[in-house]
Nucleic acid binder design. Sequence first.
RNA 1: GCGGGAUUGGCGGAAUUGGCAGACGCGCCAGACUUAGGAUCUGGUGGUUUUACCGUGUGGGUUCAAAUCCCUCAUCCCGCACCA
Length: 732
Amino acid sequence: MLHPMGWDAFGLPAEQYAVKTGVHPAITTQQNIDNFRRQMKRFGFSYDWDREVATSDPSYYRWTQWIFLKLYDKGLAYISEVPVNWCPELGTVLANEEVPEQIEKGFTVIRRPMRQWMLKITAYADRLLEDLDLLDWSDSLKEMQRNWIGKSEGAEIDFEVADTKHRIRVFTTRPDTIFGATYVVLAPEHPLVDQLSTPPQKTVVEEYKRGAALKSDMERTELAKEKTGVWSGAHAINPANGKKIPVWIADYVMVSYGTGAIMAVPGQDQRDWDFAEKFNLPIIRTVEPPADFEGKAYLGDGPAVNSGFLDGLNMDAAKNRMIEWLEKEKRGHRKIQYKLRDWLFSRQRYWGEPFPVNHLEDGTISPLPESELPLRLPDVQSYKPAGTGESPLATIEDWVHTTDAATGRKARRETNTMPQWAGSCWYYLRYCDPKNDQQFCDPEKEKYWMPVDTYIGGAEHAVLHLLYARFWHKVLYDLGYVSTKEPFMKLINQGLILGEDSQKMSKSRGNVVNPDDIINEYGADSVRLYEMFMGPLTQTKPWSTRGVEGVYRFLQRAWRLYVGPDGKLSPAVSPDDPTAEQKKVLHKTIKKVSEDIESLSFNTAIAQMMIFVNEFTPLEKRPRTVIEPFVLLLAPFAPHLAEEIWEILGHDKSLAYESFPEFDPELTVDDEVTVVLQINGKVRERMMSPKGMSKEDLERKAKEHLTKWLDSKEIVKIIVVPDKLVNVVIKG
RNA sequence: GCGGGAUUGGCGGAAUUGGCAGACGCGCCAGACUUAGGAUCUGGUGGUUUUACCGUGUGGGUUCAAAUCCCUCAUCCCGCACCA
C-alpha cells in the first residue's frame, strides 16, 4: 500500500503574496508546506513521508518540463494567438475558472488576443470520453466529464453567399431542419464578417463588433436574456431550397464553438425563435408538433413538414437522409463536434515551470535537449508582471537572451510559464519513484504500483484536474511510458465540512475551525474520530464541536475499560475465559469494523465500537482475550490512544506490528432471533425463535402467539420469511 | 434552461436482493454521587386525543408488506450554461 503526500506548490496565491511583500515565493511556499506537514503529523496521518514531492522543486519540475517536451515532439503543444482573459490590474492573463474570483475582488477582466501555448487535448476527446466506461467513478462525476467534453453529432454545411465567391460553413445537429433555415448568423469575431458587410451596413457592423469585443464572456452570458444583432447586408443561399436568406451578425453565436456560424432555424430552436421574433425574420416549422403543443420552437421528434423530399420522415431518418443528400451534392458532410477546447497552457507569471524551449531569431522554436533540464527559474528583482502582458521573467535580460544549445544560435527564452495544473498532472506517477534522477519513474515501479486504486479528492477537481491528468496519462501511455490507459480507477469525492452554522467556512463569516485549537482541546484522536463519525465520507456536513465532545467521551470510556484511575492496568481486566455472548460481541464488532473500513463507512464502524465499549463498561470482569483485540480495531481510528493502552496492557512492541484481528463467521451469527408477527402487515407481537426454524414450525408457533388476534377470523393467507417475520392476512 | 445528487426525530446520521423505521452520537428530561457540577454513572427520549392510531419532502400507484420499486409535484445542493 502506497499512501503518499505531496504539494501542488506553484500558483497564483504565493505569487500574489510575493508581489505584495517582495518575499520570494519559494520561501513562503516552504513555510506553508512546513506548516501543513506539521499539522498532518500532529493528526498522526500515516503518510509515507519518504515519498513527499513538491511540484515547485527543480528535481520535480525537471520532469514536468520533460513531459512537456514529449508533448511538443508529438505535435500536441503549439503556439497560437487566442483571445484570453486579460486582467490589467494584475497585468496577467487569467484562467476561465479564476475569472469570477478576481472580478469579485474588484478587478476588471477583458478579452484580448495573445500569443499562447496550447495543448491539443481535443485530439484525445474521443478516448477521454470512451474510457470513462473503464472507471469506477460516481455517475455524476462521469457525467460532468461527458458534458465538459460535450460530444455532439451533426453536419457541417456550406452556404454560398449570394453574388460573391464566399462560403459560410455552419455546424448543426439538426440538418433535418435545413428547409426551415431562414437566416444565417456569424459570430462577431468570424473572419468573414468584414468581407461580407455591404458598404451601407459597414458602420453598424463595425460598431456592433466593437461593442461585442468590450463584453467579456461573462457579460455576454449575463446579458443573454435579450438577443442583439445586426444585418450584414449580405445574403446566403439555402442549399436545400435555393432561397436567399439574410446573413446576420450576433453575439449569441460563439466564435469558439463549431465553425462560429450557424444556420438559424427558429421553428426548431428557441434561441433562433427569440432572435427571429425580435428582428421580424420568418419562422417556418419543419417538424410537425403534436396537436396539443403550445410552446414556440418545437425541439421534439415528429414528421418533417415544409421540407421537400424529407416530408413525412421522423427526425432521425430525416437527419440521415439530409446528410446523404449533402454529401452527394458536395455541400456538406457528417461531423462530430466537441465542446472541449484545446488547453490554454501558458501563464504570464513568475511562479510556475519555465517552458524548456528557445525562440530562434528566424521565428522557429528549438526545444531544449534533455541534458539541459531542468531549466531553472531565475531569481528576479520584482515579482510584478512586466505589465506588457509578459511575465516578470521577460525583465531579466541576461536570462532571456541565451545561446541555443542545439543549434548554437542566438535565442530568446520563452518567458511564459506553465499553469498550476501542469505539475499536478502526473504527480501520482512520481510517487512510485520519487527520487529517481534518471527518469520520471522506473517502468518496473510504474508497473508495480499503477494504476491508483483509490483516489480521494475534492469535488472541485471533478473536471479540470482529472481531465488534464487523464490526458497526460494517455499521451504517456501512447509513448509507452506507462502501462495503464487510465490513471485513477476508483475515485471518491470527500464531502466538504461546513462551519457550525452550516455555511461554508470562511474567515469573513468567522466560522472557521482551526485544527490546532481542537487538537489542543481534545487531542488528535478525538478530531480524527469525530471527522469520521460525522457521517458518510462523501457527504457535505456541518462541523459540531459538541459532536467532538461526544467522541471524546467515548475515547475516555474506552480508556477506562483498560486503565484505572492510577494510570495502571485496571483490575477489572481479567484473565478469565469470556462467555459465549462476550465472544460474539467481539466477533460481530470485528466483522462490522472490517467491512465498514473496506466500504469507507467509518461512521458505522465507530458506532459499532461504541456498542462494544457500552457492552463491556458495566462489567466488573472484562476478559482480556476479548478486550485486547478490540484495541487493534480502535488503532486505525485513534492510533495514539490505542498505542498507549497497548503498552499498559504490557506489550513492549508497538501495535503497529500486530495484524488486524480476524473474525470467526460462526461467532457472528445469533442462534436465537426475534421474529416479528404481523396481522395484515401490522406488527402485533414478537417472539424469540431458534435460528433456522422451518416455515411450518414458524407458522404453527406464530398462530399460537396470535390467538387473541385471530379469534374466529378467516385466514386468507400466511407469509413466512424464515428468521424474519410471519404475516397473517385475515378477513373481517 | 440542461445534467447529476439529495430530502428520515430538536440536530448529525442508521436501516437498500422490499420484511421490527430512527442503530450510534449530540441535545433534552429525570435520578444517583456531591458543598458544588459544564465531571462521572443510571434510566428515559419520533408524534398524538396512548387498549390504539399516525409517521421517512408532496400526491398517487404496485405489494401480504414500501424510507427502499414505479409515476407526479415541490424544495435544496453541486456542476454546466446562447455549445447551434
